[in-house]
Nucleic acid binder design. Structure first.
Length: 878
RNA sequence: GGGUGCUUAGCUCAGCUGGAAGAGCAUCUCGUUUACACCGAGAGGGUCGGGAGUUCGAACCUCUCAGCGCCUACCA
């Protein structure tokens, strides 16, 4: 027996453990069925499940479970990302608590500590994914720093290096002074702020009483200036070109040059050029062969090339202004809106910094990655994201992949004594090549830099499947079927996977890419810790169950839009689960058990044929919508069928059968009810895997597990099977509505009369008991020649007129008002029909079916109007 | 600056190829019935941001105005 109430805590974790132990998530490698595969967007190993993961993984799990039930051979490949900076940060923070820095430990020992940490605490997010119900094949769990995946990284690195797609260059890069490493453009967050614009002047070398006026937001960088640029198109300043000016304080002489970068309209028209600390100036410097003076240390303090060595940029800025003011060069300071770059992880100001770094030739790799999308080999869903993808790919810059961190894939680069580079997959190979190169044994020095985390993530689609080793998983599951991810990592990850995969595999990593939005709070505000509006999905699961949260995610996921999290709505879906639970209890109490080999086509009762047709229809809707990644439409189709059709109508309609005496009918109805409930469990399983499994396992002995039950396809629905009961439902609705509007006590059993076509009367005759029961009627009979009296209220359902005698209790005023209102509505509609049908071009140009439909409505409305007028006439004098 | 999206019922949002405006929550009535009050029945509520155009017909297509958002960018 099922418990009296739905309590997800009783079974969710238990059921998950059983699935996993039974190996239900593993693909069948001997099967030759179609493959369906997804690689999980690897969460950071340091991560805890946040609400965005809950959405992302719910959607994946729905697709995975659906396809598994469709009979495909399914692999959902899980794993985690080593998350270079993030992880190093966490471990460093832990060490700091004990007063230790990573430098105290040294590189090797530190890395050991990170691995130790991973062993202790790295599994959190995977445990949480299990709690959510994610049916990944955990036996294949991978980590981007695993031996196999590391080998993949080295192999592709070497290959790209040898193909000239990876190169070393001394360039300005985004430098994070906190972690003392380069970061990529994408890891820099631009924040709008109101800063200051500083105006001051540099004296000319040949005449210290003449000045060139400068405007800058960063006066402290003046010690790195190696020129001042003006445009030759600037009539006021062009005469200065070719002269020299003097940087105050340090009294260094620099040239005034002509460069298009100096826009006469902006600032003072003259720009100080600091090639080592500004991306634009760097370009100017290259054009004019200017010296590049580095004024910063790795931690962004000023170095000995400045008078303020050791100070932070802020301190130095204050000092510089003081000094300039003192010397009389300062002119004015204005507020100035500007954009300041911050490190995504560190939160500190990013400095353009001149260093040796390694780059991937992204513009070249982008060519094939773009072509694959343009040719439809990889398709974005929704398609708008294709634009975003191309927009970025068309403007892509070389990708800085080297990081001066310790945690990550150390680059397979070795330097010879004369700094010759040897790039090989292993140290032995590099040594061998080097020895041959030098003609003798030499000492090699390994590059200390590690790779950007996203380098290894870019290989995820094939490295997790065992590449570079040829194997059956790679064979069967690559390219993967679909990647499900949020739009914020299209560039970080999706684009890089495309580039890496097209380069190495010559095939797309996934055939489709489903992009979902962000999870926001109930009012569409972005969730953030500072606003205090974050929601912990684990708490939500604790409170309402994983199924309720999953259903919520599915029901709210409309293509590409953000999801607003509403606790009320999650509670609503918990209520939905309760509803299903109770419906199942109803079936159980009435002995509706699945009948082996029961043939639904043999159902004879109208009501049973009806629900079977509706169930097939709902199944088809869910299938179609899931096939098109329309999660909310799929979820709503299930919801509507289960609650609105099965519970609200079918269960109510079959109660009289169960309370009656017809053994044949009871037997058939029990079998059908059980069949429909089973069908519900099947089509609901991808959304709510736990409750459906619990019910599946408890209601009857089963031959198959629900997780592997067959998802029905290509069923035919006989429209005739639905029509009578649909008619009766409308009819019951009309009576209920009439009763409510007339304030007739629910308890009062009434008689009713009907005037209708022979066909409709036939339905009434057949479904009399059923209608009377739900409409609370004593009896319902055809109105033949029965005199119509004033003591009757009237309503209309489709073409049938319903009359209910109310001896002496009719409130004529209320009834007149009600009928009058109905009449007005009909007249309004009739006007619109007449207008349309009176329009010659409508009749001539609109499709015949549309015109016919309009005519039918007109006829129906006219008919109803006559009936209402009749009723009004009847009570006219009371 | 470039790109891109949004504006529909009190709230949060659906509405796929243009053919009589929908859901959930909230609100208001009413509760005969042992599956369920985490419930049931009924009802009210929208000139689909403003304007113009295309069309027989527009929430949907075009233009325009207004407001909001996101991504991206080197404006000293």
């Amino acid at each position: 027996m099922l418990e009296k109430s739905y309590n997800p805590k009783d079974f969710e974790e238990k059921i998950y453990a059983k699935w996993e132990n039974d190996g239900d998530f593993k693909p069948d490698m001997r099967s030759d069925r179609d493959a369906f595969s997804i690689v999980i967007p690897p969460p950071n190993v340091t991560g805890v499940l946040h609400i965005g993961h809950a959405l992302n993984n719910t959607l994946q799990d729905i697709l995975v479970r659906y396809n598994r039930m469709l009979g495909k051979n399914v692999l959902w490949q899980p794993g985690t990302d080593h998350a270079g900076i993030a992880t190093q940060m966490v471990v460093e923070r832990n060490l700091a608590k004990e007063g230790i820095s990573r430098h105290d430990l040294g590189r090797e020992k530190f890395i050991e500590t990170v691995w130790e940490w991973k062993k202790q605490s790295g599994g959190t997010i995977c445990r949480q994914l299990r709690r959510l119900g994610a049916s990944c094949d955990w036996s294949r769990e991978r980590f981007t720093m695993d031996d196999g995946l590391s080998r993949a990284v080295r192999k592709i690195f070497v290959s790209m290096y040898k193909d000239g797609l990876i190169y070393k260059a001394k360039k300005l890069v985004n430098w994070d002074p906190k972690f003392e490493t380069a970061v990529s453009d994408l890891e820099v967050i631009q924040k709008e702020t109101v800063g200051k614009m500083y105006y001051y002047k540099y004296p000319l070398e040949d005449n210290p009483n003449e000045f060139i006026h400068i405007a800058t937001t960063r006066p402290e960088t003046m010690f790195g200036d190696t020129a001042v640029a003006v445009s030759k198109d600037n009539p006021k300043l062009k005469n200065l070109i070719g002269k020299n000016c003097v940087i105050p304080i340090i009294n260094r002489v620099i040239p005034i040059i002509d460069d298009e970068h100096a826009d006469p309209e902006k600032g003072t028209g003259a720009v100080k050029i600091t090639p080592a600390h500004d991306f634009n100036d760097f370009e100017v410097g290259k054009r004019h062969n200017l010296p590049m003076i580095n004024i910063l240390n790795k931690d962004a303090t000023l170095n000995e090339n400045t008078p303020f060595a050791g100070m932070s940029t802020q301190e130095a800025r204050t000092k510089t202004i003081e000094k300039l003011t003192e010397l009389g060069f300062m002119e004015k300071i204005e507020d100035h809106p500007m954009v300041i770059p911050y490190g995504e992880r560190s939160g500190v100001v990013i400095e353009p910094y001149m260093t040796d770094q390694w780059f991937v030739d992204a513009p070249k790799l982008a060519i094939e990655a773009k072509r694959a999308v343009a040719d439809g080999e990889m398709e974005f869903v929704p398609a708008v994201y294709k634009k975003t993808y191309f927009e970025w790919m068309n403007n892509i810059q070389p990708w800085c992949i080297s990081r001066q961190l310790w945690w990550g894939h150390q680059m397979p680069i070795w330097y010879g004594p004369d700094d010759t580079i040897f790039c090989e997959e292993t140290e032995e190979e590099a040594q061998a090549v080097a020895d041959k190169h030098y003609g003798k044994h030499v000492e090699l020095r390994r590059e200390t830099d590690v790779l950007d985390t996203w380098f290894s993530s870019g290989l995820w689609a094939f490295s997790t499947l065992g590449w570079p080793d040829q194997n059956e998983y790679l064979e069967k599951f690559y390219p993967t079927s679909v990647l499900v991810t949020a739009f914020d990592i299209i560039f970080f990850w999706v684009a890089r996977m495309m580039m890496m995969s097209m380069y190495m595999m010559k095939r797309v990593p996934f055939k489709k890419c489903y992009i979902h939005g962000l999870v926001r709070d109930a009012h569409g505000q972005k969730m953030s810790k500072s606003k205090g509006n974050t929601v912990d999905p684990m708490e939500t699961i604790e409170k309402y169950g994983a199924d309720a949260m999953r259903f919520f995610m599915a029901a709210m996921e409309t293509q590409g839009r953000d999801v607003n999290l509403s606790e009320a709505r999650i509670q609503g879906y918990r209520n939905f689960a309760t509803k299903l639970w109770n419906a199942a209890r109803f079936c159980e109490m009435n002995e509706c058990y699945s009948v082996k080999d029961f043939d639904i086509s043999e159902a004879k009762l109208e009501i049973n044929k009806w629900i079977i047709a509706k169930a097939k229809e709902a199944t088809a809707q869910v299938s179609t919508n899931l096939n098109n990644y329309r999660f909310s439409d799929a979820a709503n189709a299930v919801y509507q069928f289960v609650w609105g059709t099965f519970c609200d109508w079918y269960i109510e309609l079959i109660k009289p059968i169960f309370y009656g005496e017809n053994a044949e009918s009871i037997k058939e109805t029990r079998a059908v009810a059980a069949w429909v409930l089973d069908r519900i469990l099947v089509i609901m399983h991808p959304f709510m895997p736990f409750i459906t499994t619990e019910l599946w396992d408890n209601l009857t002995e089963r031959k198959v597990k629900l997780i592997k039950a067959e998802w029905p396809t290509n069923e035919t629905v006989n429209e005739n099977d639905k029509s009578d009961i649909d008619w009766a439902i409308d009819f019951i609705g009309a009576i209920r509505s009439l009763r409510a509007s007339m304030n007739l006590p629910a308890g009062a059993k009434l008689s009713a009369y009907v005037k209708a076509s022979a066909a409709d009367l036939d339905i009434i005759a057949k479904q009399n008991a059923l209608i009377c029961n739900l409409a609370r009627l004593e009896n319902l009979q055809a109105l033949n020649d029965l005199p119509v009296s004033k003591d009757m209220v009237q309503t209309v359902s489709r073409e049938a007129t319903i009359l209910i005698p109310l001896k002496g209790v009719v409130d004529f005023e209320a009834e007149r008002a009600r009928l009058q209102k109905e009449l007005e509505a009909l007249n309004k509609n009739l006007e619109s029909y007449a207008r349309k049908l009176g329009n010659e071009s409508f009749v001539a140009k609109a499709p015949a079916a549309v015109v016919e439909e309009e005519k039918r409505r007109q006829a129906e409305a006219l008919d109803n109007k006559a009936k209402v007028e009749e009723a009004l006439a009847r009570i006219a004098n009371f």
